[in-house]
Design a protein around this nucleic acid. Sequence first.
DNA 1: GTCCTGGACG
DNA 2: CGTCCAGGAC
Lengths: 264, 264
Amino acid sequence: MSSILKIASWNINSVRARIDIVEKFLTEESPDILCLQETKVIDGDFPEGVFRRLGYNHLVLCGQRMHHGVAILSRIPIREDRRHDWQDNGEARHVGVQLDCGIRLENVYVPAGGDIPDRELNPKFGQKLDYIERMTRWSEKCDQPTLLVGDFNVAPLECDVWSHKQLLNVVSHTPIEVESLDRLQQSNEWVDLGRQFHPAPGRLYTWWSYRAQDWAKSDRGRRLDHMWATPDVAKLAIRHDVHEPCRGWVRPSDHVPLVTEFAI
Amino acid sequence: MSSILKIASWNINSVRARIDIVEKFLTEESPDILCLQETKVIDGDFPEGVFRRLGYNHLVLCGQRMHHGVAILSRIPIREDRRHDWQDNGEARHVGVQLDCGIRLENVYVPAGGDIPDRELNPKFGQKLDYIERMTRWSEKCDQPTLLVGDFNVAPLECDVWSHKQLLNVVSHTPIEVESLDRLQQSNEWVDLGRQFHPAPGRLYTWWSYRAQDWAKSDRGRRLDHMWATPDVAKLAIRHDVHEPCRGWVRPSDHVPLVTEFAI
DNA sequence: GTCCTGGACG
DNA sequence: CGTCCAGGAC
């Protein structure tokens, strides 16, 4: 006999500003585990009550003031594994936990990388590339069944953006970033669950800028958020969805949630 | 045959932040004219549409960036009379209009006066006193039926504050401010409508600090807002109320509206 | 407490 | 467009 494990990931762009739609999402979708990125809150101010009331009694918080911040909220037991600081600058961008079923869950928020895709002109771009390279060194040594989720801030495929041509020199879709992310993916045979369930060249976006007049009409989206699984874990996946309607909710995040179900 | 003229005054602490409760108040109370203080918006950004939709098609705006700002919104014709700048520093603190019934309506926002009740240590305190003295020079020459409303930032009577003793040295209730306001009142036989309809020593407050845990429970209020009428106009007043429940509305102003009805 | 602004970041 | 903060005012 097997059971279903449902895991969601969402760059929430401030968990406090978004608390109502997080509650709506959890109520409607009821994942066993929710991974958040960009919580933008120190652990002491995290709105724990809302999550506990909905049954998410296992909280692993990794926040900081102002920017970044990740968290894993779970209805099932999770054991904190570790927090990687791949930039070694104290930024709260990763937390990993161990599930009782033997799967490791890694939640990451890759740096956005600034506006200019040039290491010299824009140090943040170099830091982003360095971050992915250091993740790759870590990934090479991963030897357990693992699900790696989060905001990778890279849209690797042509069909991951609204216009491959117009975004070739825009941070998140430049060849140098895509190559870096490809090396990360190959370093541990990571299976891209998004494209396993919604194959290229199909349109698949997880982010739409706030700056668009009408995000749905112009549909200038990018697939910046991902769920990657080691092959053993990928085999268990039975469903994977991008919850696009969340982008149209009141006071939305610019990212939408990803959800995968596993038969374990 | 006579008709009723209903005039309201409210320090709104940002008309944009408070637009929902202003609409609620106008819908419930339906005054003919609403005088606002602390609109905190330049005229170009004033939310005119909401007022026009509710029938307030006569707008006299006197706003500035950031602070202060007054406005008169009316369902009946108003002719702008003048804007006094009693500090001569460009701050938007007064606007006066003429009504067809012969009454002049003067809407004023007296400076708060800073924290320390000392002309030397705190220049703002001196500016507040100077402001009231200059109003007094103006008031002495007023020779028309007039209603003077607004946030005077002074609670003159002992029963206008939650503790006369504890506020004797607190700006808004110091003897020097009260004496200055008394001189203003005596300069044109102004009738204090608040106390005409709700006589001392009865409790009457129009403002409760945001800083209180529970404004209603501690009830540390002050009567900072007033409606004063020349005797001819005061005789027409048939009702005057302080709308205390507005302080408990969602995202409230720290002041509540005053409403007077006149039989004209 | 709650507002405004202006800057950083996305 | 929208988050967070700091600083000033009340």
